[in-house]
Computed example of a mutant assay.
Amino acid sequence: MKKTLASDNYAGTSPEIIEAITKVNNGHQGAYGADEATLEAAKMFKRLLKEDIEVFFTMNGTGANVTALSTVCPSYGAVICSSAAHINVDECGAPEKFGGFKLLTVEKQDGKLTPQDIQPFLVNLGEQHWSQPKVVSITQATEYGTIYSVAEIKEIVDFAHKNNLLVHVDGARISNAAVSLGVSFKEMLVDTGVDFISFGGTKNGLMFGEAVIFLNTKLAENYKYVRKQGMQLLSKMRFISAQFLALFDGDLWSKNASHANKMAQLLADGLSKVPNVEITQRVQANGVFAIIDPSVIPVLQEQSPFYVWNEQTHEVRLMCSFDTTEEEINQFIATLEKLSSVSV
Rank of each mutant, 00 (worst) to 15 (best):
I197W: 05
I197V: 15
L267A: 02
S235W: 07
M231W: 12
G201H: 06
A264P: 01
E210T: 06
V283G: 00
T280P: 01
L206E: 02
T280D: 01
Y223S: 03
F239G: 01
S235P: 02
F196D: 02
D269G: 00
K255L: 12
V226Y: 08
S254T: 11
A285D: 04
A257P: 01
S198C: 15
S241K: 10
F214E: 04
P275W: 06
A242S: 14
N261I: 09
N276W: 08
F248L: 07
L219N: 09
A285P: 03
S258P: 04
N222F: 08
P275A: 04
F208E: 13
A242Y: 05
V274D: 01
R238N: 05
A246W: 08
R227N: 09
I197A: 02
T217L: 05
F214A: 06
G200W: 04
K228M: 09
N276Y: 15
R227H: 04
Y223I: 07
N286F: 13
G287C: 13
G287W: 10
G250A: 12
Q243T: 09
L266K: 02
K224A: 10
F208L: 14
M263T: 03
S235N: 10
Q229R: 15
D249N: 14
T280F: 00
G250H: 11
L267H: 00
L234M: 14
N256D: 08
N276S: 14
R282A: 14
Q284C: 06
L247N: 08
A257H: 07
L247D: 07
T217G: 06
L247W: 10
Q243D: 06
L245V: 13
R238M: 03
T202W: 10
A290C: 06
Q265K: 14
A290I: 02
G201R: 04
N276I: 07
S235Q: 15
M263V: 05
V212Y: 05
N222P: 01
M207Q: 13
W253Q: 03
T202Y: 13
L233T: 14
N204F: 02
Q284Y: 09
S272I: 02
L219I: 10
G205V: 03
F208D: 13
H259L: 13
L252Y: 09
E278G: 00
F239R: 09
A268P: 00
D249C: 09
K203D: 14
V277A: 01
F196Y: 15
F244I: 09
G250W: 11
T280R: 05
S258I: 09
F196E: 00
N222V: 08
K236W: 11
A220Y: 05
E221F: 13
T202E: 09
N204S: 07
L206T: 06
A220S: 14
K236A: 12
F244P: 00
N204I: 10
K228R: 11
L234Q: 15
Q284L: 10
A260M: 03
Q284T: 10
L215S: 04
N276E: 14
T217E: 09
R238K: 14
Q284A: 10
A220L: 04
F239Y: 14
L234G: 07
S272Y: 01
F289W: 08
A211V: 08
N261H: 08
V212D: 05
R238S: 04
K218F: 13
V226K: 06
E210D: 12
V288H: 03
F244E: 00
A257L: 07
M231I: 11
Q284I: 06
K273L: 07
N286W: 07
A257W: 07
